[in-house]
Structure formats: structure tokens, C-alpha cells
């Protein structure tokens, strides 16, 4: 996250909410790029943006918008 801030000029950044936390990312970044940045590539996860599921097949083409609420979920122990 911080790395992106330093690499890019301020006018090309936007805020998104990732699992409830505000982060700054490059404007119109794709979901795949975000996942790469967050070390989620190749992990078993599912993604919802503004309460709509973004299928894995669309991660590469889906572009994030300002104030998007992104939820990244995985399976954990439970009964």
C-alpha cells in the first residue's frame, strides 16, 4: 500500500476500502493488480466489491473505482 503511494504522483491515487480499511491505490487499478500488490496471487480467496461477487475470470479486467468496498474472504476453521 505505502509502496504505491511513493511510486505514483498524488493525482493518480484513489481511496478504496479493503476489508473495511481505507487504502490508497492507483487510479483504475485492476483487481488482479491489487491482489498482486496484497500478496494474494494464487491464494484461495473470493472477492466481493460493493456486495457483488467478482468472479475469478473477471479479476484481470475489473477496474477498481474510488470508494469501492472490496471484501476478500477465505475459508477458515468453523463448525
Amino acid at each position: 500500500m505505502a509502496m504505491l503511494l511513493t511510486k505514483l504522483p498524488p493525482d493518480s491515487l484513489m481511496n478504496i476500502y479493503l476489508n473495511g480499511k481505507v487504502i490508497h491505490v492507483a487510479d483504475a487499478m485492476t483487481l488482479t493488480e491489487l491482489l498482486l500488490e496484497m500478496d494474494y496471487s494464487g491464494k484461495r480467496i473470493a472477492i466481493e466489491i460493493n456486495q457483488e461477487i467478482i468472479p475469478r475470470s473477471e479479476h484481470n479486467t475489473h477496474r477498481l473505482k474510488s470508494d469501492d468496498r472490496v471484501e476478500v474472504v477465505h475459508a477458515i476453521g468453523g463448525g
Binding site: 479493503l18 477465505h74 475459508a75 468453523g78 463448525g79
Partner: peptide, 13 residues
């Protein structure tokens, strides 16, 4: 059974 939860951003990758 498994539960579905948010990932912990930046924790123990």
C-alpha cells in the same frame, strides 16, 4: 465444515 471470513490484510502471509 468450514467458515468464510475476511482475510487478515498483511498478517502472516
Amino acid at each position: 465444515t468450514v467458515a468464510i471470513r475476511r482475510t487478515n490484510i498483511g498478517q502472516n502471509p
